[in-house]
């Protein structure tokens, strides 16, 4: 039986309540003006990926639970390229609607466009048609295997951002060391000067939301890549201050994961604890993968 979606030649039709949530998530991976993104659609939701210099990748996972409705029908997962800046600017236009109606997204149009439409209560319609491209290259599929349990730690997002912002002063290359004895994390920058920031895991501070380290690991990363992982997160999201998790996998691959809350809609906001179960489903993931500095990347072990 053909689905109604297939009959219309569509692979995706979905309704999004909180456009601002998607704008915020995409803004977080928008680190420069001209940035090509690859959007992949699936039965689970949308993944938008941007890559830079093959050393830095940013991904936004917008799961289908974050949409009011999500209809998907395709044999092969559709992938298309768009300009990230343009997508953010377009979506932002839809946030100007004060009403409570949802944004409808459809793909593909007759010319493979992404179409967006929002009709509010007083007959005002905001619409957009974005041209899409066939992506030149497919994003690399980075992942960190759970085997051997890699070292990781999680802190409040604002604490991580503050540390990375402070490291701007020495700049250039930053080493991140996760050690088990004493348990803690050290960021060390050597450039115009030296700066060391230590996150210590002890009972007096509740800095760490999670911490795991079996064996000391230490790798260096380019400052500009590290900065990209936190610099563009909108202040509204930072205020929420959920968690950010950093994992160092085999070969020094660094994964930075942020959780951001996506409220159902501005008008349906509850003044409740953001960590309550009701809102657990309303979370979008933003991930960054950073490759270690090639020159002296293999610095595994005691620095």
């Amino acid at each position: 039986m053909t689905s109604p979606l297939a009959a219309e030649g569509l692979e995706l039709r979905c309704l999004l309540d909180n456009v601002q949530g998607l704008v915020d998530a995409l803004t977080s991976i928008h680190w420069k003006k001209q940035q090509d993104a690859v959007c992949e659609l699936s039965e689970h939701g949308m993944v938008i990926t941007v890559e830079e210099w093959s050393c830095l990748q940013g991904r936004v996972y917008f799961r289908k639970e974050l949409f009011r409705t999500y209809e998907y029908h395709a044999d092969v997962r559709p992938r298309f390229g768009v300009s990230l800046g343009l997508l953010v600017d377009c979506l932002n236009t839809f946030t100007s609607s004060s009403g409570t109606t949802a944004l409808e997204l459809q793909y593909p149009g007759s010319d493979m466009q992404l179409t967006l439409k929002l009709v509010d209560a007083n007959d005002t319609c905001i619409y957009a048609e974005m041209r899409t491209r066939i992506p030149d290259t497919l994003p690399r599929d980075y992942s960190i295997e759970d085997e051997g349990l890699p070292s990781y730690f999680a802190v409040k997002s604002a604490a991580l951002k503050e540390a990375i912002d402070d490291l701007e002063w020495p700049g250039s290359s930053i080493s991140i060391t996760i050690s088990s004895d004493p348990p803690g994390v050290t960021f060390k920058g050597e450039g115009h000067g030296d700066l060391q920031i230590e996150f210590l895991d002890n009972s007096q501070t509740d800095l760490f939301i999670a911490f795991h380290c079996d064996q000391i690991v230490s790798y260096r990363y380019k400052y500009k890549f590290l900065r990209a992982t936190t610099a563009n997160i909108p202040t509204g999201i930072m205020k929420d201050n959920r968690g950010s998790k950093l994992t160092i996998g085999a070969g020094g691959l660094l994964k930075v994961q942020h959780l951001i809350s996506v409220r159902p809609s501005p008008t349906h906001q509850h003044h409740s604890d953001p960590s309550n179960t009701q809102q657990h489903g309303r979370v979008s993931y933003i991930e960054f993968y950073v490759l270690p500095d090639a020159e002296d990347g293999a610095e595994d072990g005691v620095p």
Binding site: S83, L86, C90, T93, D123, T124, C125, I126, Y127, A128, E129, M130, R131
Partner: peptide
Amino acid sequence: TTMVSIGSEFRK
């Protein structure tokens, strides 16, 4: 523009 057409229609 070459990449996008976006706008708003206010009716009635």
